[in-house]
Computed example of a mutant assay.
Amino acid sequence: MTYHVSRRSLLALGAGLGASTLLGGNALARAAKVGTQSPYFHRFMLGGAEVTVVSDGPLPLGPPKGTFTGATDDEIKKMLTDNFLSPDNIVLEQNSPIVNMGDKLVLFDTGMGTSQAFGSTTGRQQKSMAEAGIKPEDIDAVVFSHAHIDHIGGVVDASGKVLFPNAQYYIAQSDFDYWTDEGKLGSPLKDFVIHARKNLMPIRDRLVFYKDGQEFLPGVQALAAPGHTVGHTMFLVTSEGKSFAFLGDLTHHQILLMEHPRMEFSYDTDPKQAADSRVKMLDMLAANKIPVMSYHYPWPGYGHVVKTGEGFHYLPEPMQMLL
């Protein structure tokens, strides 16, 4: 037997049942709303390593116009609405993996910190770490994908105190030099440079510069993917034969910059080079079926890349709630 259900018939059904029936009677109606959300961390295993993803909070970019270019406004709107996303406000996540290798606890990127350049929902990383039971003084290594404001912002607190006192720090020298250059303080990059200097100069003596292809920590290999910034780098993280790639900002959006990887992003230092890096690295990840962790994808940002014609598709990995 086949049933044909329309929206009108569903509405009629709801009216016939009555509000009290749909709400489960008066008992449920009297229950107070809790108004809280679950803690902002998630764990999974990678070989012998335990990975804890912590959030710095949602990062709203506002309307896509002017930020994502290379497609018409109508095309971008359709891409978003077809995937049940708001066409009026692009909201990114900020997902930082903390990898416990057994002998080292490694954090990738540190969020916005005290900056509220994108609103008040960011700057949550320390709280998320506390919810996950991880103390900042236990972090052995902090690895930066690049020196943009939302990746290096959580090194120091409002008073300038270093929040990861026992860590060694890792970054590409080209990115450090570019974003701490005082000569750029008179340019449109001023706020980014101020924030980079605030967070990176206090740890200058503990910075180690990695090279492309180098395994600079056991199980962590640097893979240069320039364009978003001059030294933007992604990382292959490996434990007991299992790997994932931490993408940093190789691609900011799971639809726009995957379906149309040649689309450009206004925060890229060199948009053409960024698109070249994006296509090259996504091709490699898809061909080798390497899982990915993306800093800006929907929480918790872990999944897979598959090739689809001229573009790519992101498939989120189901969250495993039993370790």
Rank of each mutant, 00 (worst) to 15 (best):
residue 140 D to L: 12
residue 140 D to K: 07
residue 142 V to T: 10
residue 142 V to D: 10
residue 150 D to I: 05
residue 150 D to M: 13
residue 152 I to G: 03
residue 152 I to W: 10
residue 152 I to H: 10
residue 152 I to C: 06
residue 153 G to L: 06
residue 155 V to W: 04
residue 155 V to D: 07
residue 156 V to H: 03
residue 157 D to R: 08
residue 157 D to I: 12
residue 158 A to N: 09
residue 158 A to S: 14
residue 159 S to K: 15
residue 160 G to D: 08
residue 160 G to N: 07
residue 161 K to T: 09
residue 161 K to N: 14
residue 162 V to L: 14
residue 162 V to Y: 06
residue 163 L to N: 08
residue 164 F to K: 08
residue 164 F to Q: 08
residue 165 P to S: 07
residue 166 N to R: 14
residue 170 Y to S: 05
residue 172 A to Q: 14
residue 175 D to G: 11
residue 176 F to I: 00
residue 176 F to H: 10
residue 177 D to K: 13
residue 178 Y to C: 13
residue 179 W to M: 07
residue 180 T to P: 06
residue 180 T to H: 07
residue 180 T to V: 15
residue 181 D to S: 10
residue 183 G to P: 11
residue 185 L to N: 08
residue 185 L to W: 01
residue 187 S to T: 13
residue 189 L to E: 13
residue 190 K to Q: 13
residue 191 D to G: 03
residue 191 D to C: 03
residue 192 F to G: 05
residue 193 V to Y: 01
residue 195 H to L: 15
residue 195 H to A: 15
residue 199 N to G: 03
residue 200 L to I: 04
residue 201 M to V: 08
residue 201 M to I: 08
residue 203 I to W: 09
residue 204 R to C: 04
residue 205 D to C: 08
residue 207 L to Q: 02
residue 208 V to Y: 03
residue 209 F to H: 02
residue 209 F to K: 02
residue 209 F to V: 01
residue 209 F to R: 03
residue 210 Y to C: 06
residue 210 Y to S: 05
residue 210 Y to H: 07
residue 211 K to M: 07
residue 212 D to Q: 03
residue 213 G to N: 12
residue 213 G to Y: 04
residue 214 Q to V: 03
residue 215 E to R: 06
residue 216 F to D: 04
residue 218 P to W: 03
residue 219 G to N: 08
residue 223 L to A: 10
residue 224 A to P: 06
residue 225 A to T: 13
residue 227 G to A: 09
residue 228 H to A: 15
residue 228 H to W: 10
residue 230 V to P: 15
residue 231 G to N: 11
residue 232 H to M: 06
residue 233 T to K: 12
residue 233 T to P: 01
residue 235 F to I: 05
residue 235 F to L: 09
residue 235 F to M: 09
residue 236 L to K: 14
residue 237 V to L: 13
residue 237 V to Q: 04
residue 238 T to A: 10
residue 239 S to N: 06
residue 239 S to R: 03
residue 239 S to A: 12
residue 241 G to M: 07
residue 242 K to V: 00
residue 243 S to N: 04
residue 243 S to V: 09
residue 245 A to E: 05
residue 246 F to S: 14
residue 251 T to A: 14
residue 252 H to M: 14
residue 255 I to L: 11
residue 255 I to E: 00
residue 256 L to R: 01
residue 257 L to T: 13
residue 257 L to G: 04
residue 260 H to G: 00
residue 262 R to H: 14
residue 263 M to N: 02
residue 265 F to P: 01
residue 265 F to M: 09
residue 265 F to Q: 02
residue 267 Y to T: 00
residue 268 D to H: 07
residue 268 D to F: 03
residue 269 T to C: 10
residue 271 P to G: 05
residue 271 P to M: 05
residue 272 K to P: 00
residue 272 K to T: 09
residue 273 Q to A: 11
residue 273 Q to L: 13
residue 273 Q to W: 02
residue 275 A to Q: 13
residue 275 A to W: 04
residue 275 A to L: 05
residue 276 D to Y: 12
residue 277 S to W: 02
residue 277 S to G: 09
residue 278 R to N: 14
residue 279 V to Q: 03
residue 283 D to H: 13
residue 285 L to V: 10
residue 287 A to H: 08
residue 287 A to S: 12
